[in-house]
Design a protein around this nucleic acid. Structure first.
Lengths: 225, 225
DNA sequence: ATTACATGAATGAATGACCATTCATGCTTT
DNA sequence: AAAGCATGAATGGTCATTCATTCATGTAAT
């Protein structure tokens, strides 16, 4: 009886592993193919071939082509978000938190170099329904940056005239664009450490040698019309 | 005789204007449609309808769908590049040059809010042949930023440890991401001046209150909620 | 001035290629 | 033997592109 239960459970686990295997095999094949050909020019048969699976099999695990893209995005980005959030909780210093964010992002992109491109594709594809969904998911990610900045402002470490809303976009955009070219370009590759250092250097202290001399520096902005 | 020549030339000019009108009508219709639906989901018939022209007419002015996208990109971005370069020549101060770059970019995007999205789409499309072409065209644009930074470094205004290659991507990426959301979001819209001020503020002096203290000075904060 | 003819721009219905999705069939596992 | 996973050829719908035809304008002839 006990034995039977065991076998039963085992079979469930095996079944699950197998299914999960095929599921994730398709996910990673799709990531690869989407990154290489772009969502629209990627054919289902390409993904199937890459995953060593029949075309029809894909439809046992996903509803349609778009669902695959969505899953790639959700699962892979979800991992990053979760990962990053966990690391951030353990760290109180906003400086360090920014550093962690950058490092995490870059490492994730390096680990899965196709992912950066898929994020780009997904992020830019405009499909109302999905956009809303994605926006929630994604603004959570960029929202992390805004939170860090706000905390830094409360702590008096970051300047109060910086608008977290804008700064988070600037920060994410910078990181995203760097990742994009990082993968695909044949130029000298910078290391994660180098990029992190530069990013923090730029965003924390700016590129000027003498910060106080720039006359246009504005600490209090006029309210908008 | 003279009169005939005149009439002849006039007719050529009129013909050219007419053709040019249709050409640019299609271009701007395409910009609109591509921005709204994305390149792949945009149908030629959509563009035709938007331009108030028959489907077939489009093929009198463009070779194929991709050619339209390419033309949109080339013509519109070309204008910006040229415009910006002209303004920069007249200004020697790297600070001001950066300001001009930001302002120009934002104003261009504001003027033609669909363009920002098309650039996004185009920039992320992976199609070998076009990618190379686009890269040349586009790296010219980002190259401007790198040049400004290098000049600033030579002049001792910008820090020497900043890598222009990375900084230009960070700068462009930030600007690009801000433009992207700026257009499509329903959030409070910032003005060109505000965004410019923030961008310069961030990139020139950083977001820190006390630039020189990182990483020595560490603040201990209560952990976030 | 009017009519006839020529040109080529514009049209949009028809074509055909492409590919996501389905499903009848075979295969494996229990 | 039953259940259900996997297969990949067949289906059907969607456009990009084409091209026979129309239409407008300009030119020549009477």
């Amino acid at each position: 009886m006990l034995f039977h239960s065991f076998i039963y459970l085992l079979s469930i686990v095996l079944f699950w592993m197998k299914a999960e295997n095929k599921h994730s095999k398709i996910i990673s094949a799709a990531t690869k193919v989407f990154a290489k050909k772009g969502f629209f020019t990627a054919r289902i048969s390409d993904i199937a071939k890459e995953a060593k699976v029949a075309d029809g099999t894909i439809y046992l695990y996903f509803n349609n082509k778009y669902d695959i893209l969505l899953s790639v995005f959700e699962e892979e980005v979800g991992k990053i978000v979760e990962n990053t959030e966990n690391l951030l909780i353990a760290e109180a210093d906003p400086h360090k938190q920014l550093e962690i964010f950058v490092t995490q992002h870059l490492m994730a992109m390096k680990k899965n170099r196709h992912l950066a491109e898929v994020i780009q594709i997904e992020l830019r594809q405009t499909h109302k329904v999905i956009k809303e969904y994605r926006d929630n998911k994604f603004s959570k990610y960029t929202g992390i940056i805004a939170e860090i900045i706000k905390n830094g402002q409360l702590a008096g470490i970051f300047r109060l005239d910086i608008k977290p809303d804008l700064a988070k976009r600037a920060f994410f955009g910078a990181l995203d664009e760097i990742s994009r070219v990082w993968n695909s370009s044949l130029e000298t590759n910078y290391s994660v450490e180098e990029i992190t250092a530069q990013m923090l250097s730029i965003f924390l202290t700016g590129i000027q040698t003498t910060p106080s001399t720039f006359p246009e520096q504005v600490f209090f902005l006029p309210s908008q019309p």
